[in-house]
Design a protein around this nucleic acid. Structure first.
Lengths: 237, 237
DNA sequence: CAGTGGTCTAGACCACAAT
DNA sequence: TTGTGGTCTAGACCACTGT
């Protein structure tokens, strides 16, 4: 938080969630915030824009800036999409993970196209099952190319693959694209996640990119339908 | 597009998708764009920030601004979440719709809580089935309170409920929250969408809000699992 | 009218990358 | 060193809202 607008953003966010500015309250106008944080109006605006993007506040010309109602928590795992924290939040939620398999395979056409490598090139293939309250909720299949991400070992996987990529290899993760779909469960889904044949999974297909634009990770996460939801907030324009 | 930064945003976006700046190309630096559009650097930045948010470009300190690869289209209906167009795009995609039922009911507990009205209050209950290439792909159930949104008729529904709300009633739609889940299909899903019993639906639950903060619409859209996907883009921070 | 947010400017200095 | 984007300022004028 070395940057001023992020400090203002975080301070206001903390104040909102700690109840200093409760739901539907009006927060101080921009000029007051400028004085409070010793910042220019553009800087305060930038902080407020972040909060608007996350659906935490909204602003009305001529009236002021107001705190939006926010959600109580429930028992579902909730991936909240937000531009500021999207990538990290979803990869941050983990729960206990069990490595199910880890080997080297030849890339089939789908994997090769996603990772932008030739068909038949070797790829790491990692499968994990993650648990929440001691019950399985997701089966993850991950593919990475050793030519892009070398040195993946059991130890690396047990620690953090992202650490390995960014710290050890000195690469930078840039972005990810995700596609969500409902799917009938396969017999393997049913076995691993404890589903009945008529119970579906929510599949999240993800391609993650390095800052060079190269895709480095292709993954499928097959979630129990009753333990995973995805929420999104959209402002009318 | 009366505003300068939106004009710059739209012009660059058009140029990118028309091939003036192809995938991975570097677009002109900020000072050049300032001259080209006769704008200050802050204004150009604001336009570029929008494109970054939508996952169209990315920027690298010391290097420049680059066009990200973008998706080819497939046959699935694709709801792209983006802060700029999120609300409208998804309510813009329609296809032919058939009204399945339209009546007045007493709000049950779920609907009452979502719409923030007392249990037992009357609510409009609208069901529609939407078609894409002459085949059903979604069954929509919508609840609205006549005390908030009066005057809903067959004619209004056949035209546009959003027009009615904003033009006729003079209310302003502010935002929406959506939750996505996979669900087993019910016998009714199977009948309406032509699914087998083992085939699931992707359910999108949505609450839409007026600018007063009041929820005015509660809806469930149950999509055929094989004709709907939801995609999201996340930047690493 | 006064108070609010929305846009825009013309600079400034900094951080980072390539040369 | 040069060129790039990142942050920040101290104003200005405009658009909208409520009084």
């Amino acid at each position: 938080m070395e940057v001023k607008y992020k400090t203002i953003y975080q301070t206001l966010k903390d104040q909102i969630f700690s109840g200093t500015y409760p739901t539907n309250a009006r927060i101080p106008d921009e000029l007051s915030l400028c004085k409070e944080f010793d910042a220019s109006r553009m800087t305060v605006k930038k902080a407020l824009d972040l909060l608007v993007q996350e659906g935490i506040i909204y602003r009305r010309q001529g009236q002021g800036t107001f705190v939006l109602p926010y959600e109580e928590q429930d028992n579902l795992i909730n991936i909240q999409e937000s531009k500021l924290e999207g990538f990290t939040r979803s990869s941050r939620f983990r729960g206990a993970a069990k490595k199910y398999s880890f080997d080297l395979e030849f890339a089939d056409e789908t994997v090769a196209r996603a990772l932008d490598i030739p068909v038949g090139d070797p790829v790491y293939h990692i499968e994990r099952i993650r648990y929440y309250h001691d019950k399985p909720y997701v089966w993850e299949l991950t593919y990475m190319s050793p030519s892009q991400i070398p040195g993946v070992t059991d130890e690396v996987l047990n620690a953090s693959i992202y650490q390995h990529i960014e710290k050890t290899l000195g690469l930078r993760i840039h972005s990810s694209k995700r596609i969500l779909r409902a799917q009938p469960s396969t017999p393997k889904d049913q076995e691993l996640l404890g589903l009945r044949p008529d119970e579906p999974v929510l599949e999240v297909e993800q391609i993650a990119y390095l800052d060079t634009g190269a895709p480095f990770e292709y993954s499928f996460s097959r979630h129990r339908y009753d333990r995973f939801k995805f929420s999104a907030f959209a402002l009318r324009q």
